[in-house]
Structures are given as C-alpha cells and as structure tokens.
C-alpha cells in the first residue's frame, strides 16, 4: 500500500544517539551558551537559529525513524 521504505535500525540508533548527545552538550553548557546567545549581536542570533535547526533535524529524524519502525510513520 505504501511505497516508502522503512529506515534501518542502525540509522535510527545513530540519529537517536546524535540527538541525545546534542541535548546533553547544550544543557550541560547552557550558562556559557546563553551568555553567547543572549549577547544581542548578529552572529550569536544566527548561531542560535542554526542550533535550533540542527536539533530539529537530528531529533526530528530520530523520532520519525523510530515511529516508522513501530509502524506509525507519517508524512510530517
């Protein structure tokens, strides 16, 4: 019925590992990161948005792959 191929288990584990790693790195260094992000300049603002995109991509891919593996895939 559906032409989509399921992601491999390794790919899912890799994305999950990277997403968890990114979250831990950010939250363990939040004081220093926020000092940079909240310094009201162009480069910190761009870096902040870049970080948001990276996390959305890594965690979004991990969750999407995980749900596909358990049969809950969606077009989002």
């Amino acid at each position: 019925m559906c032409g989509k191929t399921k992601p491999s288990l390794w790919q899912t584990i890799l994305f999950l590992f990277l997403a968890i790693g990114a979250y831990l790195v950010i939250f363990f260094n939040i004081e220093q990161l926020n000092q940079f992000y909240l310094s009201k300049a162009v480069i910190p603002a761009v870096c902040l948005l870049g970080t948001v995109i990276c996390i959305a991509f890594l965690y979004g891919s991990a969750i999407s792959n995980l749900l596909s593996l358990v049969g809950l895939e969606s077009d989002h």
């Binding site: 950010i26 926020n34 992000y37 009201k40 300049a41 162009v42 910190p44 603002a45 996390i55 969750i63």
Partner: peptide
C-alpha cells in the same frame, strides 16, 4: 534573538514533546 528574547532551553524542551 537580536534583543535576547529567545530562550533556547524552552525551544529544546518544547521539541522533546512536540516532534
């Protein structure tokens, strides 16, 4: 973000559930 209003901790915590 240029005026320091974006709290990245909140963005990341929202993602945990929202995605």
């Amino acid at each position: 973000a240029l005026n320091g209003f974006v709290d990245i901790r909140l963005v990341l915590l929202l993602y945990v559930g929202s995605l």
